[in-house]
């Protein structure tokens, strides 16, 4: 498994890729959730009758 050893630099290379992935996925998920939330709220505000 020389690939995962990264020539002895595994403890630096993998965290760099891991942190990048986590941060960008996190940014994407929070941005998307905020959009969905506001879309729901505007929908509710435009049609107040449907509030239950």
């Amino acid at each position: 498994m020389t690939f995962f050893a990264m020539g002895g630099y595994a403890i630096y290379v993998w965290p760099a890729y891991g942190i990048s992935a986590i941060a960008l996925i996190g940014l994407g998920v929070t941005s998307w959730r905020a959009l969905r939330r506001n879309e729901r709220l505007v929908e509710l505000a435009d049609n107040p009758d449907r509030r239950s």
Partner: peptide, 19 residues
């Protein structure tokens, strides 16, 4: 992501005026 976040902000502004 910028487009997603801009849409979110435009909706937030609309919500504020509605309120």
């Amino acid at each position: 992501l910028l487009l997603v976040r801009m849409r979110t902000e435009i909706l937030a502004r609309r919500l504020r005026t509605l309120r």
